[in-house]
């Protein structure tokens, strides 16, 4: 063995990355390529695809073919679902940020021992079963759920206040599901905050609000961007939440895609919808990449 053993060995070690990359390429990237191909084919009558080139899937996103004379008519149904998903996601991300930032800041300023407990408390829902957590929300807000029963028992209302299967239920469910995704990255950027800067701000007669908006928030920017992204991406593609809290109507993009691959049996259509969603996610990621390069490098 040569003297430069460890270095030469390190060079060989690169190949250890290959199996993981190969598995993800074969079973993760290739399926996405298949989706691209499928979106350009014609749908077979009983699910699956016919191998003829067609742009029908993309055209029918905006237009509906008239059954009598084959003319294209503009219809906004799908656009509406996309708009609604976008609106839900923006509102959820905003609410998560408004409530998540103070939480993350509070946790980051605790003594180490207390901090670990708070962090674990935020982390546990992060890894817990989304289906079960959404079911738990359903138990609370159903017509005969705990909230309505409680309010009726108190005499505040006489008839149940309908919350389940509404837009409110979906946004509440999304907020509840993805709040930890906001708190954790915010925490990791606030944890590294140098409080001498805050002290300097006070020395220069800034009040607490000015210190927050002029010093803390700008420094935490990479964490804020990362948190918003981590909430926005799962929101825009949400499937479980509208399924359980939206009452099964295709209220969001995720439900729409699943329906095309399921009961609607229009795979090219579903594939095209998935790609349009993916394009939206890529725009968000590009925006994040641009921000991360410009700002301070964000470490997880």
């Amino acid at each position: 063995m040569s003297v430069a053993g460890p270095e030469a060995e390190a060079r060989q070690r690169r190949w250890l990355t290959l199996p993981a990359v190969a598995v993800i390429t074969l079973f993760g990237v290739l399926p996405l390529v298949i989706v691209v191909v499928y979106s350009l084919l014609r749908s077979a009558p009983y699910g699956g695809v016919e191998w003829t080139f067609s742009t029908d899937a993309y055209v029918s996103f905006l237009y509906q073919k008239d059954i009598f004379d084959d003319t294209l008519q503009f219809h906004a149904d799908y656009l509406l679902i996309y708009g609604r998903s976008l609106a839900f996601s923006v509102v959820t991300t905003f609410v998560c940020l408004i409530l998540g930032f103070p939480t993350a800041y509070f946790i980051a300023t605790r003594p180490v021992a207390t901090r670990q407990i708070w962090l674990l408390l935020v982390t546990i829902p992060f890894w817990s079963n989304l289906l079960i957590r959404t079911l738990a929300i359903m138990l609370l807000i159903r017509d005969d759920g705990l909230v309505n029963n409680g309010l009726m028992w108190l005499g505040v209302i006489d008839t149940p206040f309908v919350m389940i299967f509404t837009d409110f239920a979906i946004v509440l469910g999304l907020f509840y599901s993805f709040l930890p995704f906001m708190v954790l990255p915010l925490f990791s950027s606030l944890e590294k905050l140098d409080f001498r800067l805050v002290e300097a701000g006070f020395d220069l007669y800034a009040n607490r609000f000015q210190v927050l908006t002029r010093i803390i928030l700008p420094i935490a920017r990479p964490g804020i961007v990362a948190g918003c992204l981590l909430v926005f991406i799962p929101c825009i593609g949400a499937y479980v939440t509208p399924l359980i809290l939206g009452g099964g109507k295709h209220l969001m993009i995720g439900s729409l895609i699943a329906e095309q691959f399921g009961s609607a049996r229009n795979w090219p259509m579903g594939a095209a919808q998935a790609l349009i969603l993916m394009a939206g996610v890529l725009v968000a990621l590009w925006f994040y990449g641009r921000n991360a390069r410009r700002g301070v490098a964000h470490a997880r």
Binding site: R14, T17, V21, I24, P31, V35, G254, W267, A271, M278
Partner: peptide, 28 residues
């Protein structure tokens, strides 16, 4: 190495519903 890292973190960036339908299409 950057490309390898991107590939490994890809499943985190693609919305789950897209991974789901893509995998379904692949196996079918």
């Amino acid at each position: 190495q950057g490309a390898a890292y991107m590939t490994i973190s890809l499943p985190l960036m693609v919305p789950e519903i897209i991974t789901a339908v893509a995998t379904l299409a692949f196996f079918s």
